[in-house]
Design a protein around this nucleic acid. Structure first.
Lengths: 201, 201, 201, 201
DNA sequence: TATGAATGAGCCTTCATTCAT
DNA sequence: AATGAATGAAGGCTCATTCAT
């Protein structure tokens, strides 16, 4: 078999944890909640992850990867650089705004990381990977064509991510206030402005 | 007597709570911690705020107001619209990135609000006020001069706030990654691009 | 004035306490509840009764007296001994079963007295007085006529009171189970049997 | 293993609770007291009974059953109906007056039930069972012989119980005031009077 | 005489963790 | 590999009591 039985259980626990954390948030989630959701005893959870810290750590890694993977698909379709940019932005926004369990967990643990030194490096890596994804795309479709932005190239992805993350929080706090269309349109306009390209018709 | 004894104590508790929350985060802060920081007994805290919820509510309001007030000063100096914009952006960034207790508390409780219906409205109002502040400035210094952005005017403040908030989280997670200068420069450039103005020399 | 202001307040507290105790029971009643009901501060309650114990003691005395007084009227109407007996039994039953605040408080504190040495003597006196009341009546209307019961005369009142108290608890626990008519009828029959008198037509 | 470990512990807790409640009364008994008496941690008590309510409920049931069972033996010895009646009354009285832990707990929680809707049904059942026990005996030994009381047959057991309960409270409040002999004698006399039987020599 | 503020012990409950099985 | 039982430290909250005013 592909995974040992033990590994299956361990993964089930992580999945259950993500579900519960997405539903209740870190501050209100106990190991008992997670065990119940995973259909196991508290003891079993401790068998696989000896501390809550270890478990949460693993949860964060899994959740980050999941979000990352989801946005990865965004960059595949190649058409024109412009069409590609738009569909990518759309995907990046959706992956965050959709309230998937994983995105919620990342958002919640992001805040936890302000006070938890163990969590912070993982989030830093998450940001780095996300930025790299964007950089890669920009390099292939814009920089390679000689199209350069008005701001430092290494800063651009950080801005995009920051903008998306910040907007998503506003979206969560007051769901109606930002229409997805407006968001994507605006970011697109912004991107074009930065690249000194004429707005597409 | 300027303030009643009771009001002083109540305010001391809020201040202590903000200090402790900024240090430890909501999930790790108990009423006992707050009482200790305030130099009072747990009972006294309960005397002034019958519930942890009530207290946190008040804390959030105070913290939001503090952050708001800090950025309010940003808009005062009038010179040219451009100089004003830059100094304002700088102030907005600093107010958030400086790791003041209040800004940290707002960031933390923002995440809590994902799971706490009582907190959410307060944060929504916070966003609204912040957006209004920006709108007001833009109206006076840009719209009034006939300078219009390429994106819907009511969306612009939301983008600015989103961008700042999002960047600040990256800054918190990995302190070195964004230099304040770069951030402000970039946002300024971005703003100028959006307004179709030539970059100042 | 008849009462000093202080005495009025003290009495108001007792009355309030009886109302609250009747509503919530001793185990669930705090001094704060009583103060609130009395429209005073907790401090004021403590000014008049320095401990909860003192207050409860006073409450019990007042409640006992109230119940006693209520049954006292029962013995007034003199007609025939038999008619008098019946109406008296009726009054005794009603005073207990009616769920007046005072009767409830006595019933509740009676149980407390099992564990509280301070309360017990008061209850003992209450029983003694109630027994005396009955004895007096029996002496005047029966013994004086040479009608003697089959059981020791000094035990009879105790039996009557016990019977009433015991039945009243059943009545409280399951309100429908004993009709007041049945109860009075039965006790009357019982009394007549004890006195070897023929049942009245 | 005859009993599971868990069941043993659960039973030990109930037993400990009965002991403590009998000693201190409901109003003065905390879970910590019970845990200490049971030789366990507070956490263990909560492991077996998730709520104080649940625990008290179980305690009441156990105590009621214990009292019931004790009086059950009273009805076994069959000799003559008259001798049987007397010995039964004696047993009924003793079971209540002896100050067994269980009887005290029932008496205390009986009072609590005035303010606790969860407790009341259990006590109602307790009364019903006790009444049934008596009815059964009366049916077998008196009604079956054509001996009928002067009062409604279904009321008779309620009167007996009420009388015993009420007398027991007097007995608890002032231990010396009622000699067991007197009580049983009187009730016996009372019973004979009700059945229109000649007093035995 | 009365209040408002404060205390500290104690209450019920939750929870991460341990451990024998 | 997993469970059930148990622990003990907190956690939020209640409450009788004290005391300056």
């Amino acid at each position: 078999m592909r995974y040992k039985k033990s590994e299956i259980s361990a993964a089930q626990i992580i999945d259950a944890a993500i579900r519960v954390l997405a539903r209740q948030g870190y501050a209100r989630t106990s190991l008992a909640d997670i065990a119940r959701e995973a259909g196991m005893s508290k003891g079993a959870v401790h068998y696989h992850y000896s501390t809550k810290e270890t478990l949460i750590d693993q949860v964060l890694e899994t959740a980050c990867n999941a979000v990352q993977e989801k946005t990865l698909n965004a960059w595949s379709n190649a058409e024109s650089p412009f069409a590609s940019l738009r569909s990518s932005l759309e995907a990046l926004w959706t992956a965050r705004a959709e309230r998937t369990d994983e995105a919620l967990v990342v958002a919640d643990l992001l805040a936890q990381s302000l006070y938890d030194d163990k969590l912070r490096p993982r989030l830093a890596e998450y940001y780095r990977l996300a930025a790299d994804q964007i950089t890669e795309h920009l390099t292939a479709h814009f920089f390679a064509l000689g199209i350069r932005p008005k701001i430092p190239a290494e800063l651009l992805p950080r801005l995009v991510i920051g903008l998306l993350d910040g907007l998503v929080m506003q979206h969560f706090v007051e769901p109606g206030v930002l229409s997805p269309e407006d968001v994507v349109n605006s970011i697109e306009t912004l991107a074009f402005s930065l690249f000194e390209l004429p707005q597409p018709a």
